[in-house]
Structure formats: structure tokens, C-alpha cells
Amino acid sequence: MNASRAPSPAKKLALAIVHEPERSTPAPLGAREELLRSLLQTASDGGVNLVATRPDGDGERLLGQAWPFPSPFQVTISTVPISDGVDRVEARARRSLERLGLPRGDTLLVSCATDLAGAEGQALWSRLSELKARGLFRRIGFRATIADGPVLLARRFQPDVVQLPINLLDQRAQRTGVLSELAALGVEVHAASVFADGLLFFGGEALPPEMARHAHELSRIRRRLAEARVDPMQATLAYALSQPEVGRVIASVASAAELRAVLAAAHAPTPNLNWDAMQLEPATATAAGPNSRGSGRVSSAA
């Protein structure tokens, strides 16, 4: 059974903008800024209003230079590792806002749930709570995998937001009841890794070495999609968007063209698919964790 999709899927979408050279279009700095402005304008025109960022690389600064004014976007920021110390975590979160050119952010997420499970977890959470109380961030939360025990962490820390890998190939968050339990706690779930690192877009010979043993199963899933005349991107987005407990579905894009492909797939009618038949076996299901590039990739599908 497929859940009904929300009337405006773009409102449920969020973006993680990829700046790495292997994904983005090679261009001089000035041209890169113009391409980023075009991407952001496409997002704004399409009704997308949340951008997820990370503190590595130069992405925050580039975004800060490219925002349209007035900006229609809210921003989710991730912390640096707790190994740098709690003071450093706070300083870097403030620095992220400065680089983005924003007085405040929407959400501050602990980048790795294991930081909260460690000895300094409570001190870290207290520091994030202080930043929220001061109005620098509207909400706080954490990024996690199913193996991190997100429900137990949510009961302990009472976050506003939890970001989890959720995709067609790895449906454990929904199948094990994690999504419904988080919803019962009043937590908004953000779905990351929705394209499962592009696994459905690769042929068997192009699979990463660690996934080669799943080539037959992935081929079976692609064949089922082809028989149903459903594009893999449409299917992966439809699965994530159809989960009622998911508040945001994060898609990584490197260009306005990729974003237009995502928006078109998100607005397509929900396919009549048996989701159970589309997942990898639970024992072998894979998804990028919270320390991957964040949201899966459009890859060659765009």
C-alpha cells in the first residue's frame, strides 16, 4: 500500500548543494557563483525553501555570496566533531552563520549521533540548547543511522529534528517502526541518502566494489521499475515523499539542471509500486550514513 503524497511535494523537499569538482560544472570562480545563483533561483521558483549545509569545504561561503535577496531559504547547519571540543563546536556553528551571511539558522544538527552517546554528549547538547535559547537557531537535533538507536537518543535528548538515511533500497527506518516512534515523540524527521548514493542509476559494471555482490539484486529492482515504466529517480523520491512521518526529503544537486530533474520527478504521479519488492534484503541493505555527502546523489540520472 502506498501512502498519499502531499499536494505540494516541493514544500517537502530540501537541498544539499554539491560543490565538489567531480559533481559541479568546471568553471571560473565568477561563473561558478552565477551557476549557483541560477540553482538557488530555480529552487526558489520551484517552491523549495530549505538548504542543508555542512561545515567542510567552501560551500557555506559560496552560498553566502549567492543568496537571492531577500532570501526565501531556511538553512540547516551541521556541527564539527566533538573531538574538537565543545567550545570549538559552538564557535564553528557561529562561524557557519557568518560564512552564510545569516543572523540565524533554522536548524543546528549534531553531525554524528555517536558524539551524543559519548562522555561529552550531555555537555554538547546543553551547548546547542543554549544557542537555541539565544535565538541563533530555531531548532536543534542530530544526524544518525538506524544502528545509532535514534529513538533512544531522541527520548534522552528530546530533539526537534532527526536526520536519517531513508530510501527505497534501505527501508529499515519505516519497517522497524523508527519513523512512527520518532513522530510519536514530536520529532520532525529529515530523510537523507534518498538516492542511496545513486545505486539504482549504475549498471552492474559501474557499481562500487563493496556493492558488486548486490549487482543481481539491484538488477532485479531496476528491471521491476522498467517493467512498471517508472524512472528510478521518480521511484526513489516517491518512496521518501510518501512517508507521512518524514517532514523533509533532502536531495543533493550540483546544478540547476539536476534540480529541475528532481522537481519533475517529485511532481510526477505517485507510481503504483510494491515498495516491499524494491528494497535490498534487510541484512544487506545499504545507505550512506550521516557522514557521507548527506543525501544521495542524482548522479547520471540527472
Rank of each mutant, 00 (worst) to 15 (best):
L164D: 02
L164G: 01
P165E: 01
I166L: 10
N167K: 03
L169V: 09
Q171E: 06
R172M: 05
A173Q: 02
A173L: 08
R175T: 09
V178E: 05
L179M: 11
L179W: 05
S180R: 14
S180C: 12
A183S: 14
A184V: 11
E188N: 10
H190I: 03
H190Q: 01
A191L: 11
S193W: 05
S193N: 11
F195N: 11
A196G: 07
A196I: 07
D197H: 12
G198A: 12
G198R: 01
L199T: 04
L199I: 00
L200I: 08
L200T: 09
F202T: 07
F202R: 15
G203T: 12
G203Y: 00
G204E: 15
G204M: 09
E205M: 03
A206M: 11
A206C: 03
A206H: 11
L207T: 01
P209H: 04
P209V: 12
E210F: 15
M211C: 11
A212D: 08
R213S: 15
R213A: 15
R213N: 14
R213V: 10
R213G: 14
A215E: 15
A215Q: 14
E217Y: 06
S219D: 14
I221E: 10
R222P: 07
R222S: 09
R222Q: 15
L225C: 11
A226R: 12
E227L: 15
A228N: 03
V230M: 00
P232T: 02
P232V: 01
A235N: 00
L237Y: 11
L237N: 11
A238H: 09
A238V: 02
A238F: 00
Y239T: 02
A240D: 03
L241M: 05
S242Y: 04
P244I: 02
P244M: 07
V246K: 15
G247K: 01
R248A: 00
R248Q: 05
A251Y: 00
S252M: 07
V253S: 00
V253H: 00
V253E: 00
A254V: 06
S255C: 07
A256E: 09
A256G: 10
A256H: 09
E258S: 07
L259F: 11
R260G: 01
R260D: 01
A261N: 04
V262S: 03
L263A: 07
A264D: 09
H267D: 13
T270K: 09
D276V: 02
A277M: 03
L280T: 07
E281W: 13
P282L: 08
A283F: 04
A283Q: 14
T284H: 15
A285M: 03
A287W: 06
N291G: 05
G294W: 14
S295H: 13
G296A: 09
G296I: 04
R297I: 12
R297C: 12
R297H: 13
V298L: 13
V298G: 06
V298R: 03
S299N: 10
